[in-house]
Amino acid sequence: MRRPRFSLSGWISDYYYRYKNTIYVPMVLLAPSILMLAVLFVYPIAVLMIQAFQHAPTDPGKGFTLNNFIKLFGDFYYFNILLRSLLVGLGTTILTLFLGYPLALFLARSKIKKRDLLVVLLVAPLYTSIVVRVYAWMVILGKGGLINNLLTQWGVIQQPLPLMLNMTGVLIGLLHVYYAFMVLSIYSVVLNIDPALEEAAMNLGATRMRTLREVTIPLSMPGILAGSVLVFVLSMGAYVVPAFLGGRKVMMISNLIYTVVIDAFNWPFGAAIATALLIIALLLTYFYSKLLESPVKGGGFGG
């Protein structure tokens, strides 16, 4: 075939083909994304981390200092917020796991026709803004909200129940926001477990519960771990849910960062809190990847 007249696509293609098997092609293809993330993600976060070691306006001085971290971990008020974020993260993880595992199992193992539709219905809320979802929960949980209204009307209660602006509200909101993440993580793993393994266990005399404990749960460990780390990291760093459903009483780490940086304009201290959050998130992700690498995935169950 004759070479056509010059065309840009032909020119690029010829270069692509000439260097197809060299490192240059992937380098060129990766350049835009690496550049973007280096400039707008890695670099800003690195700068933030450096700033965490500088003196705050409230603590004048020169050179590097650990004062911001000492304040974060030493001052009970701030340390309390950090601890609370971790506990809320843990609580949300446990809630989503215990309420999510049965549903994931149900979706993966049921033989109903419209299973896909159920999965899509689970996913669909993720396509709406968190602000919208949290607003809806305020309408449901508030003093004059749906639940209190109905209970008062039915005469069950005289005084409205405190359902939000406290820990209950935060946990309900976070459960709703991150529930689908947990279910989907487990669902996609259970779906790939050969049902014959469970049948084999029952064939060997194991009861349903025993099969679940000895076969299904250990095999779905990768999904449980992935979902748990994801939900923990996301809920620990949640901003919108505690802002509206927690109020001042249940302030969490992201809200603290916003307050410190935007309202108090204390960048170094805000940077230190952000650094602590980042390190926790990275450590969790790191341990998670180590766990998945180990040859005995979630081993040690029942023997």
């Binding site: 993600f41 976060i45 933030l48 760093g237 952000a274």
Partner: peptide, 9 residues
Amino acid sequence: VPVVLIGVA
């Protein structure tokens, strides 16, 4: 990474 970090950074 928690999104708040992207925002603040």
